[in-house]
Design a protein around this nucleic acid. Structure first.
Lengths: 230, 230
DNA sequence: GCAAAGCGATAACCTGTGTTACGCAATCAG
DNA sequence: CTGATTGCGTAACACAGGTTATCGCTTTGC
């Protein structure tokens, strides 16, 4: 069976057939999580490498003061936490947004594949580098933009990522989440998120469709965003 | 010659002797940069992988509006930009803080070593994962802490990183930089950075020694910082 | 089916930080 | 040696966004 991890790694165009086969031969074990259940806990050092096969999750860190921060979302095909490959305990938890199915292989197994199939390592490195780029974008917005741009950025990157994972989409996001999560992802208060969402809705960029956010105009959302000089 | 990249990769404890030898056999070429000179430009897709051999650099992104953001510092032994290994153009530039010497090997050369020495890839993956962790810490502070904690965090992480790179240090930082860089790294205005530094100096945590910052109390700085629940 | 809890909207008020402006000292260019 | 530039300190003022509180609607638990 060709699962989502290989699909995604193949997208990065470094894998050859034999690499793919080796990954598939690992025969991963499925795990299921309900919405809001922790797929992996902060501080854990699990013995298996997991990736999302179906559903969405998000990365969150809880602080002593009860404050929490949301980093980004984990979409199908992405590793729950690349850090398990390095043996370092995780620095955040990963929480299921809706019903999530993951696949898991033993760390040792994947490492063995990596050592015999260097392109697999390379592909994982690509993933980690891409992750870094997304985090830098988030830092850029947290540091240097106001509420409207921050929330626009939040939705724009979500829309983009969903588009690559599921190109036929209609703009409705694949998960349901409330203001609190947007607040933690943008560094704003819940009240101010509410004010800002109202604005974005008035501008016709997003809308709430039942309990599900819908992206109405991804291009204009992206324009609102802070853009780097080329 | 054992250079800084191998030293650092060895610190991650994945490399064996043969890996180290392969890296050293690449026979890197030295390059020199003056303070404030760009080691690598945003948008570049260089043919060589560079790492810092001596001196300090920092990562910065300039935006259309003239605003700029500083991500973090590049210390000896660290890659200028892991993205060159993935062929993706760089999303920020890397600027020398003082006199910097880098070493460079052709991308193809390092990739060849990676494919024959899987532990080298693994070590690079470790580095990328560590980088991600640092970026998440920065996001945490930008999103959920005030000016004092942000600036404290800036100095605390600088102090820690310098301590691992150069454990015998006396608290004086290995580079000279002004308020503008602190402002871009913390997402504050220059004026408010000035106010905040005054506070931190009054608290006896840092001090200015000529034009060089000195960390007086790294432990208390770290305590001031936002800490994750374990 | 009802009470309780959760979530979103909105209002009033407060404050941390941005902005603008100016003065001073140190460094630099000629 | 001197004028220009750059970087830091400080003050006055403005405002974006935080905080607290209240209300209504929806969902959840029993």
């Amino acid at each position: 069976m060709q699962h989502r991890l290989t699909q995604r790694l193949i997208n990065n165009q470094v894998l050859e057939d034999e690499d793919r086969l080796a990954l598939e031969r690992l025969d991963p074990k499925a795990r299921y999580f309900a919405a809001r259940e922790a797929v992996m806990a902060h501080g854990a050092r699990p013995g298996g490498v997991q990736w999302v096969e179906q559903g969405w999750a998000f990365r969150r860190r809880r602080l002593e003061n009860g404050v929490s921060v949301v980093f980004n979302f984990v979409l199908p095909g992405e590793l729950i936490d690349p850090a398990v490959l390095t043996g370092v305990p995780s620095d955040h938890d990963v929480v299921a947004l809706n019903e999530v199915r993951t696949l898991e292989v033993p760390v040792a197994g994947l490492r063995a594949v990596m050592s015999r199939h260097p392109r697999v390592s390379e592909a994982l490195l690509h993933g980690a580098v891409q992750d870094g780029a997304r985090l830098r974008d988030q830092i850029t917005h947290l540091g240097r933009s106001g509420a409207l741009k921050r929330v626009a950025f939040f939705f724009a990157s979500l829309a983009e990522r969903q588009a690559t994972a599921d190109p036929d989409g209609s703009g409705a996001l694949g998960a349901i989440f409330g203001h609190d999560i947007i607040a933690d992802a943008t560094g704003l208060s819940r009240v101010h998120v509410s004010r800002t969402l109202k604005q974005l809705r008035a501008m016709g960029l997003i809308d709430l469709d039942g309990r599900r956010w819908r992206i109405l105009d991804a291009a204009r959302l992206r324009e609102l965003t802070l853009n780097a000089t080329v």
